[in-house]
Amino acid sequence: MKSIFKRLTPKLDHNKAFVFILISTAAIWFVLQLSKTYTTQLQLNYSIINLPKEYKIEKEQKLSTYITSTGLNLLYLNLFNPQINIDYSKFTKSIDFISLDEAVLNNLISTQLEVGKDQVEVNHNLKLRFYQLFSKQMKVIPILNLTFQPGFDTIQDIQYSPSKVTVYGKRNILSSIDSVFTKPIIHKNIDDSISSQIELNLEALEFDQVNTFVIEYNIFVDRFTEKTITLPVEVINLPLDTSISIYPKQVEVSFEIPLSKYDKVSAKNFKLVCDYDKAKVSDSYLIPKIVKSPKFIKYQRLRTKQISYLIKE
């Protein structure tokens, strides 16, 4: 066994030496190649600094340029793709475009990449279309999908904030839009008040910016019960020289009311009238109408739909 190992050992040493020489040769060749000079085309990213806030570049493009430099430097540029910063003041402005000529581009690239001007070749202008941003306040419309446990309901309109948002974009697009919708507000079997947030639905809206993407909302909920009270009938717009007698003189109204408000509501919180001007000459009745009632009650119903009257001679 030892004799076999001794015969294999020289071969193993020989293989290791061969691999070492191969790797060393490849490394030396690679270093030599990186030290040579090449010319290659690069697509450079850029950023426009000090651009006025109300301006928006419609479609940016990359800077195409030829760079002559060592392989090592070109490898670095390809790997890290440094960004070229261009100050807005250097552009030439027209109605719809801003542009930069080849000479200015050449100088910017050579300075920021730290290569000679003769090592940079730009054979095109940089021409960008821009537009001005306009702002418009738009009403927020919530999309509601709510169901309540039996006996429960909202005690006031849903409160949401902000009720308006500021949207920024092209004037011709904003002029045709007056409101934005929320994503669906979905709550099932509600039996208590809710405070939460919902995102605006902006998928179909062509905009550039909006001052908020989320609104807060509050749903105030209470248990409701039925209540009935009796209201006096008041006749309005009765001519001064006319006297009438009405029947009935009082009308019952029933409605749904939050339990927390049950004892706080009475006839003084309502006003029921009959407008004499709206009575038909051929009819001998008036139509009662509630013109004042608490905002938090629901489903109010008059037990009497007509008030009979008789003109006194």
Rank of each mutant, 00 (worst) to 15 (best):
K16A: 09
Y160L: 08
T212C: 08
T92M: 11
K170W: 07
P150G: 10
F224E: 06
Q61I: 13
K271Q: 14
P82H: 08
P10L: 00
N145Y: 06
S193A: 06
Y262R: 10
G71R: 00
D241P: 01
I28T: 09
N269M: 05
V291R: 07
H14D: 10
Y299H: 13
N78T: 10
L100Q: 04
D277E: 15
H124S: 14
S176F: 03
V104G: 05
L77V: 06
Y262N: 07
M138Q: 14
L79H: 12
N218C: 08
Y131N: 06
E114N: 15
F134C: 04
G169A: 09
H187R: 13
I311E: 15
R129T: 13
G169E: 09
S163P: 01
R171Q: 13
P150W: 07
Y276L: 04
K261S: 14
F207P: 00
Q132C: 08
P239M: 07
V167T: 00
K53P: 02
L63P: 01
L231H: 01
T230E: 13
S69W: 00
I185E: 01
K139T: 15
I229M: 03
T304D: 09
Q119W: 01
I198Q: 15
E60N: 13
F270T: 02
A26T: 11
F80T: 13
F255V: 05
I84C: 02
Y168K: 09
T92A: 15
K268P: 02
P239Q: 08
D277S: 14
Q306W: 05
K227I: 05
P82N: 11
T68Y: 00
E121Y: 11
Y276R: 02
